[in-house]
Design a protein around this nucleic acid. Structure first.
Lengths: 153, 153
DNA sequence: TTCCTAAATTAGATTTAGTCTAAATATCAA
DNA sequence: TTGATATTTAGACTAAATCTAATTTAGGAA
């Protein structure tokens, strides 16, 4: 569980030192910008947002650093319906999960503590240490009126 | 639950007719080839396999038809670690889920009936009809010796 | 503190998955 | 059988992500 930017910086620095990666100003910058995002974001969106605010960190470094932030548990990475990868902060105890309508594309987020329990059991069974997860149920809206397009797309 | 190719063809044809899509020989061919795959496969892999066996169905049609097969529940679609989308047959009652090591890339498949129950409850709550799901836990192998690369990649 | 080497960063080229286009073809309701 | 329109097609295109090779930098060693 990551609680705030100070804590996240600590975790990230520890992770880098432990893995004999180097602590660089670019990596710190990416972490800071990632933490500023209120919602989930793609690597390119973050890169452009940073550029827009005067940062000179390159696209490649943004992509690389986001992967490191996933590996050390600060961010989660999701792939919705084969679109570009989206990242989000991994704050607090419960990571939220997603329902996605294959008809209208609507995304419903929900929290479920049971899923985390199952995850713990599975990891125990397979000798695995969980960092984060992605649980996506694909389906469609039961009520056709709520299904925005109701089309075939 | 889809049981075999005959059953899958039935489901697909019903789905197409209901949605006033057309039943075409290309769509049947894609279904047949998808069913022949023993493991999960990408859209492009299927396209090339079909081409290789003399099929003339185009790449665009393969991509489109796979999406239809997901929509009608015959296939599941997963995105592992931001790689290309992979499809697999949705056979039997339990869809398997995945543990992925962010260090060595190992993929462990497991079955868990509880996850399906949770999914049912969630869908009930949000007025949603599930077709299939993708549950991926990212983490790392507890035993370093089992972690193939144990490196930074 | 300075030096040195391997790691990291960079801009931009490249690759790759997937989508789009507009012309040709095929389905299926009437 | 016919005709409106859905589908298919090859290949162009787009966007995400990775790669490259030159340059810069971190941080351990002296």
């Amino acid at each position: 569980m990551v609680f705030n930017i100070i804590h996240a910086k600590q975790i990230f620095t520890d992770f880098l030192r432990k893995g004999s990666y180097r602590v660089t100003s670019e990596r710190s910058e990416v972490l800071e910008f990632a933490f500023k995002q209120v919602q989930h974001f793609s690597a390119d969106e973050l890169f452009l947002a940073m550029k827009n605010e005067g940062s000179n960190v390159s696209r490649a470094t943004v992509y690389n650093t986001l992967e490191l932030l996933v590996k050390c548990g600060i961010l989660s990475k999701h792939n919705f319906l084969g679109k570009e990868s989206r990242y989000e902060k991994n704050l607090g105890a419960i990571e939220h999960d997603h329902l996605i309508c294959v008809n209208c594309g609507k995304i419903i987020e929900f929290d479920n503590a049971e899923i985390l329990k199952i995850q713990e059991n599975i990891c125990e069974k397979y000798g695995f240490v969980a960092i984060n997860h992605s649980f996506i149920t694909y389906g469609f809206c039961k009520n056709p009126d709520e299904c925005k397009t109701n089309g075939k797309d």
